[in-house]
Amino acid sequence: MAKNNETKSKAENKEDEAKYPNIPGQPPDESTATLLRELVAHLRQKRSELREEWANRIQEAELLTAMTKEEILAEATSVYDNYVEALETGTYEALQSYARNLSERIIPRGVETHEVIGIVLLLRDVLARSLFAKYRDNFSKLNRILDAYEPAANRIANTVSVGFVQERERVIREQQEAIRELSTPVLQVRERLLILPIIGIIDSKRAQQLTEQLLQGIRKNRAKVVVIDITGVAAMDEKVANHIVQTVDAARLLGAGVIVTGLSTEIAQTLVTIGVDLTKIITVGDLQGGIEEAERKLGYQVQQVDPTKS
């Protein structure tokens, strides 16, 4: 087959060069648009055959293993149609939004970036093979068709892959955000009393977020007293300590008193050494003591219950 094509190509190329000596391979009466139209007509005509072949190749290559054959075929049909439409119109918005929509659906099912790039490249290959088959007897024409097809196909592959990666990044960002929020839960233990247990490492970004969440929480729950428990805080530097002092002050401006509990000896020493002024902050040894103190402030009666008797 290769030999056959080669001999043909030589003959045809000579003919072309004779006909269009100035612009080889670019006959003026056969623009890229015309070629793409012809290409699109071919792809429409072969629609069911090609997309089925594509779906089969996807399965053979063990891509999209998280999806059933029916699902793959259904998506393949949509991608195919969007693909042909992008070739026809030269606009990529519809394809782009479809790619994003598709990504949104398949990302939670664990589809990876290499799979998405893989299937787009497979489609490109399936279509290119079909073009070879159609124009095998007219190699010069095949060259021109491919010249028109390649840039468009590359752009499509690019659009779909980038769409997927962007969607994935968005999901990751959302998850990071969710983790950050989870890591600083504002809990309401009883009416007008909030607890903010801080666990792990606090950086400036997290400290900022923590303060914003607490202030919103105070307003939402109409809290009068807040217990910030820092038992789980591994280390604290001056910046973070000052942030906690600021949080206490800001909470006070909203009318809520703050009690800090769980200040370890090490952290307390560090804070004194670096000169953070904690004198205006009420501190209580542990969370239990802090809640009791908070309840006293709220006017609740606190009773000692002997656990052995209950």
Binding site: T211, E212, L215, Q246, A250, A251, L253, L254
Partner: peptide
């Protein structure tokens, strides 16, 4: 006092 305003005040170093 709004939460953002309270935060801005303490960040600026303003105290009531």
């Amino acid at each position: 006092i709004q939460p953002e305003v309270a935060l801005a005040m303490v960040q600026l170093g303003l105290s009531l």
